[in-house]
Design a protein around this nucleic acid. Structure first.
Lengths: 209, 209
DNA sequence: GCATTTATATATCGAACGATACAGAATCAG
DNA sequence: CTGATTCTGTATCGTTCGATATATAAATGC
């Protein structure tokens, strides 16, 4: 353990988590360095020494968020036996997280950089990539269901995009103060229509072909 | 018309429209005064003399946006004969507007202040109020449909919230670069399930009662 | 002990932010 | 014409932004 020099005086992981919460709550540009250092309990030079710059800190915070909160989504998609159960678990689990009073409302990936100045386009693009990754994961899960015979041959892109859109809308609703019950009521609507939706995607896909 | 003093050298309405476009594209905080004055073709003092301050300019821009783009929604809700047609027209017309290449993608009311610094909470609240107004208009339209016998007695709040969520999700999808065809494909999914959804909202409402 | 290394706290830095002071230009009333 | 009024362009204002220079404190290696 060749830890030369004065040892760090704060818990880097704990500080990162605080930074994540601030970014989650206020967005990339809405979170000032002053906000960040105050929440992290350190001064600016310590922040820069430990994380590089604001953008690098944000990317680490997004990574932490993905590992923490994205776990819900990943588990819902992999562990549920059927596509329908996977989609419903994905929606319900995220609604639960979106309305956890101990956390900022809604999804950080969706909300933290919806509008950025042109100088921070890279930040927007980074989150856009993450959003597309989630949609792709859902699409792959639906494809797996077709292969497993759990789902008829449907337009998986359409279904995945539809539920992604609903999920992103739920983030806005959560941020706007909707209750967990209200959001679950919306999920009820989204899931009640599953059978019809699959039929539609099937026929539409056939019409296209 | 006692127009005293030196006359204004620019078209106030045209300048406001340019400001609206900048706010629409970059959001309230993402749009700097430099961006605004450049797009409006005027200098800062002219902007302040004509509009007061950045926040007042933004509120006027939101008002203009509501009158211009909100017209689509208002017309869809009032002019279509049935609730189903009204909702579908609302979604289709907004998808058309969201993907108009001559305009910024997505809805300004949804995207322009999703994450604001605490100093500009009033801006967020203003747009939140507008969003709630739109949901309320949809809910009233559904209630009207029940009164007209066009719709069974359903949980109109749930249906209105569901389609609002979908519409807000569509704004994010549009901003993320989704094509008009892709968004219409999502609307297909949302509308294909109308009958099932109404049945569900009916029974659920009865269960509740 | 002493040199080296790294982290900390204070005190900024230059740039960009929203917003104005000011002088000059353009119109009106008389 | 003169005086009053309003708009315009230049040149800032004070503040906050993200990011650092500097000196000191706390650890290690020898």
């Amino acid at each position: 353990m060749a830890e030369r020099g004065r040892p760090r005086n704060f818990d880097r992981a704990a500080a990162l988590q605080q930074a994540m919460n601030i970014f989650w709550q206020r967005g990339y540009e809405g979170a000032s360095l002053c906000d960040l250092t105050a929440a992290m309990g350190i001064n600016a030079p310590s922040l820069y020494a430990a994380f590089g710059c604001k953008e690098a800190l944000f990317r680490e915070a997004v990574q932490l968020y993905s590992e923490r909160e994205g776990l819900l989504t990943a588990r819902a998609l992999t562990e549920q036996p059927t596509a329908r159960q996977a989609v419903e678990a994905l929606l319900r689990d995220n609604v639960g997280a979106f309305t956890d009073p101990k956390k900022p409302a809604g999804c950080m990936i969706v909300l933290a950089a919806t509008n950025c100045s042109t100088a921070n386009q890279a930040i927007s693009d980074h989150l856009l990539e993450r959003r597309r990754f989630i949609t792709a994961a859902l699409r792959r899960r639906l494809q797996r269901a077709i292969k497993e015979g759990d789902l008829p041959r449907v337009d998986v892109t359409a279904i995945a995009n539809y539920y992604t859109t609903l999920l992103q809308g739920l983030s806005i609703q959560a941020r706007d103060g909707a209750s967990r019950a209200a959001l679950n009521r919306i999920v009820d609507c989204g899931m009640a229509t599953w059978n019809t939706l699959i039929e539609t995607a099937k026929t539409a896909s056939l019409i296209k072909a």
